Simulated scan of single mutants.
Amino acid sequence: MNIKTFGVERWMNAYEHGAFYNLAETDAKAFTLDELLSLGKKFEVLDELLRVKISYNPTTGSQSLREVISSFYADTGPENILITTGAIEADFLVTNSLVESGDTVIVQFPAYQALYSTAEARGARIKYWNMNIDRGYEPDIEELKSLIDDKTKMIVLNIPHNPTGAVISEEQLRTILSWAEERDFWVLCDEVYHDFALEPGVVPPYGRSLSKKAISVGSMSKAYGLSGLRLGWIAAPDELINRCWCWKDYTSISNSPINDFLATFALKNIDKVMERNLGIARQNLETLLKWFQEHESFFDYVTPKAGVLTFPRVKNIPMSTEELCKKLFEKEGLLMVPGECFEMSGYLRIGFGNDSKMFKTGLSIFSSFLSSIQ
């Protein structure tokens, strides 16, 4: 099985750790351990943490963590949850468990490469369901319907969508799931930004809660600001969980018991976690939209409905977006992700979930750079 080089991850590895200003971050602002534990009775929680044995964790994840996660979904118990090393392993396990050579896999596009390159490496035919900026990144499910064929094994949705911030409505999601039930294919719902609704009611219910043909994938990284835990999960029917578990025995085996403990604690305090993260994101989005308006001669953009990402189209800049991002990094230590990492030259992925002071400074530096090329 030959697999493509992972464009965006190689880009981040090359530039992220040397950057002074990060406008490429896809997560909520990272918690410190002290800040996280302070969401509860810190010293009591710390005392529990210090008693955790640093040994192998159950390969499926602890019972307590799977119980908390299963409570998010309708008709779902701990036996329907498999804990993984981030959402990326979850997506990898699902794809390897389901997709065979000759299958059709339809992916909402542009997309995080893990959502389609594994299927492509397994010999699947990949079809793109394109989110178009000229249509406001609004999902057109009639276009999606036209892509479904007799060999369709899986549709891959990202709800909310990375990198555009678009969101499929509940009515649209229910329609897609009804097609899956009628034609017997799966719908992989990567829902790592699910709790990042910038306005109430814009994000549909979890796919797993709506249909047995939906597979929900979650993570501690994006919405929760805890990417360092490297912990995600799959919510799916028992039979598929067992198939994914067989693959997990050959990948990560198990997750750290320390990370399992901290994830359980964070998810039991999810309201406090999201109050903090949404506050930062909303403040930064207000700053970003004002900045876009001030620089409208350089960008076409769509206001994201959820998540912490926006995917503007660049105009009137005499260089490729990859060259632009390299110059900003080399001259200013400013990190952004070019559209080339998504097979979409001419676009930028900008993340607005990070520290607000740093975010404003980064935009100010970008402004000065744009002024210098006019």
Rank of each mutant, 00 (worst) to 15 (best):
Y193W: 09
H194I: 08
H194Q: 15
D195E: 09
L198C: 01
E199C: 00
P200D: 02
P204Y: 03
Y206H: 14
Y206L: 04
L210A: 09
A214E: 06
I215E: 11
S216M: 00
S216G: 00
G218P: 04
M220K: 03
M220Q: 07
M220V: 08
S221V: 07
S221Y: 08
K222M: 09
K222L: 12
K222V: 06
A223Q: 05
A223L: 06
A223P: 02
A223Y: 07
Y224V: 08
G225L: 07
L226Q: 07
R230V: 10
G232E: 08
W233V: 10
I234N: 04
A235R: 07
D238C: 11
D238W: 14
E239V: 15
L240V: 10
I241N: 03
N242A: 12
C244R: 04
C244Y: 05
C246K: 13
C246F: 09
K248W: 10
K248P: 08
K248I: 10
D249W: 13
S252K: 14
S252L: 13
S254I: 06
S254W: 13
N255C: 13
S256V: 04
I258N: 00
N259I: 01
N259P: 05
F261P: 02
F261Y: 11
L262D: 06
T264K: 10
A266W: 04
A266D: 05
L267S: 09
K268A: 06
N269S: 12
N269R: 15
N269G: 08
I270P: 01
K272N: 13
V273Y: 03
E275I: 05
E275Y: 11
E275T: 11
R276F: 03
N277C: 09
G279M: 04
G279N: 13
A281N: 04
R282D: 06
R282M: 12
Q283C: 10
Q283V: 09
Q283L: 14
N284D: 10
L285K: 03
T287Q: 01
L288I: 09
L289C: 11
K290T: 09
W291C: 01
W291P: 01
W291E: 06
Q293F: 00
E294I: 03
H295L: 06
F299A: 02
F299I: 01
D300K: 12
V302Q: 03
A306D: 00
A306I: 06
G307A: 07
L309R: 00
P312G: 03
V314L: 12
V314E: 08
N316M: 05
N316L: 04
P318G: 12
P318I: 13
M319R: 14
S320H: 12
S320E: 15
T321V: 08
L324G: 08
C325W: 09
K326S: 12
K326Q: 15
K327P: 01
K327T: 14
K327V: 15
